[in-house]
Design a protein around this nucleic acid. Sequence first.
DNA 1: ATAAACCTGACTAAAATAGTCAAGTATCAA
DNA 2: TTGATACTTGACTATTTTAGTCAGGTTTAT
Lengths: 141, 141
Amino acid sequence: MKLTSKGRYAVMALMDLARFNNINPVSLRDISLRQGISLDYLEQIFSKLRKKEIVQSVRGTQGGYVLNRKAKDIKLTNIFDAVDEKVKTVQCKKDSKKGCNGKATKCITHNLWDELENHINNFFEEKSLEDLVKNNFEKRV
Amino acid sequence: MKLTSKGRYAVMALMDLARFNNINPVSLRDISLRQGISLDYLEQIFSKLRKKEIVQSVRGTQGGYVLNRKAKDIKLTNIFDAVDEKVKTVQCKKDSKKGCNGKATKCITHNLWDELENHINNFFEEKSLEDLVKNNFEKRV
DNA sequence: ATAAACCTGACTAAAATAGTCAAGTATCAA
DNA sequence: TTGATACTTGACTATTTTAGTCAGGTTTAT
Ligand code: FES
Ligand code: FES
């Protein structure tokens, strides 16, 4: 089970954005430089974040991105959902009559993986962008 | 974050094995048929389980595999560890001085991913093969 | 006007996944 | 002793996913 760079970068970038959000739009170029993430890749990621209304864009010079809601109303779940970083513990279709190996019933481990999926998603539900920023920069003082 | 088939199959196969373990060695062919998993693939998986002393092999006719310890002493952690199904939330080296983007310090999300990794591993520590078998076949009564 | 910044879609190298395939060796049972 | 069963090992491969890059735009403040 791996967390992908896309998901990791999305959170990294949004934490950076959340920090400077109050004053002006934050440009991807700045985030790219501060966090060491490729600008082109960030553009892909923010395109998705914008479509899911996590951020808003401001075009033109001095433009950039701003959060579209309060930091405490953005959960990790929302971020991961936006960039298609899904937790998938099974391959069998949810509503299919076929189990994971083509049988008619669900396999003997299916419930376990559902439980695992919930366990992981709970973690993501609990954490808001506000929490993350606070915890991170409190510790550095 | 995805769980791979290898990990899923390993648990599936061991649950099957644990159920019939008391009487005779269980052949991979039987597991293959009952669970719908490729025999060749199972062989790869059990080779690893044997090397990590989760199971023991019995060669020859009427041979197969038996558990090498009591089902309650085999945790999900042990199984996943044996088949290299690792939980990896970060790519940065643990002891390296470099953060995930080549910087000298750890990035702003590093602690978060460590926390996530622990959260997931806790789930795996909690569950023994005995629990899994019991829960699964109790529910079916 | 022009530079800063967002926007879009296509493309790709490298890695990981999910197996298959081939050629064994060991053991039991008839 | 001969076959069948079952474990053992290592190499191979098609497909998918990942982690980006690249090439072109468009918008807007100055
Ligand atoms: S049937 Fe859903 S995991 Fe096997
Ligand atoms: S995740 Fe470890 S430094 Fe970024």
